[in-house]
């Protein structure tokens, strides 16, 4: 596309590897089609960098449909950029004007160390799920799916929370780098369903504990996470998490060690 192309200036965080010093480097992005997605714009810049013998900008991405949760960068100080409920891969360049300057930085959190440029390690999220973000239902022959009716409202609430894509925008946008929205979304998803009840309080306790161990900050209810979430997950889930946590802390019991029967 020649006519109508945008000419932009990018200020991009470049860091050659984990624990290396990094800095903001400026790049021109010329003749960018407004129809491009933000990541396609980065592709275009990278093609130019490779051709001119420079190292391309590393960034995580995969599905480019806004569902896998791989992509995610701070764009002009906002997680995933200026458009609400939109991942970076679904953000289109028509959102920008010719001559705009765009700041592009990785998610910043101690629990998300930078691997290279805009790529961070979000393994902490997996470990929070490992702590209890599941229902223990080993593969086998559970009861027929329809033998457990679930009210549509509960199923819908669970689905709202389950829509989380684990991108980390909530952490990135939070002034405290808190993972509360991520953790609360999973606690709410599973806690709202009858199948999730037996492990409900154990789960809340374990996941909150893991969230702290990973070094995320606490929740101050700024509301930034909800605004940044590409799936529109509500901070109401955090209310649910806190409620479950209170009940869990109040009712926590020693787990009994049973003697084997031989």
């Amino acid at each position: 596309m020649s006519a109508g192309g945008l000419n932009l200036t990018l200020h991009v965080w470049r860091q050659s590897g984990p624990n290396k010093a990094g800095k903001i480097v400026d790049y021109p992005a010329t003749n960018i089609s407004p129809e491009m997605s933000f990541l396609e714009m980065l592709d275009t810049v990278n093609e130019g960098l490779i051709t001119s013998g420079q190292d391309p900008i590393a960034f995580d991405h995969d599905c480019r449909e806004g569902i896998c949760g791989s992509c995610g960068v701070m764009i002009n100080g906002a997680a995933h950029g200026p458009m609400k409920q939109t991942t970076a891969c679904q953000l289109h360049m028509r959102t920008f004007k010719n001559g705009d300057e765009i700041w592009i930085e990785p998610w910043r959190a101690g629990a998300f160390p930078v691997i290279k440029d805009l790529v961070v390690d979000r393994g902490a999220f997996d470990r929070i799920i490992q702590a209890g973000g599941f229902i223990s239902a080993p593969t086998g022959s559970p009861q027929d799916a329809n033998s457990l009716p679930i009210s549509k409202l509960d199923a819908d609430d669970a689905m709202d929370a389950a829509a989380c894509i684990g991108c980390g925008a909530c952490v990135a946008a939070c002034p405290n780098a808190s993972a509360s929205l991520f953790t609360a979304a999973k606690i709410t998803h599973l806690g709202r369903l009858p199948q999730g009840q037996p492990e409900r309080y154990r789960r809340a306790l374990a996941m909150v504990t893991q969230m702290d161990i990973e070094g995320f900050g606490g929740c101050t209810l700024f509301g930034e996470c909800q605004e940044a979430c590409p799936k529109g997950i509500s901070i109401d889930t955090i209310v649910q998490m806190n409620r479950d946590y209170i009940v869990a802390a109040a009712s926590e019991r020693e787990e009994k060690v049973e003697m084997g029967a031989g």
Partner: peptide, 22 residues
Amino acid sequence: VNIIDQCVAQGVPFAREYGGLL
């Protein structure tokens, strides 16, 4: 048929009717 049973047991929030069935 087992897949649906298994997934519901794991907490997959399939769409439901008002009666609570899938």
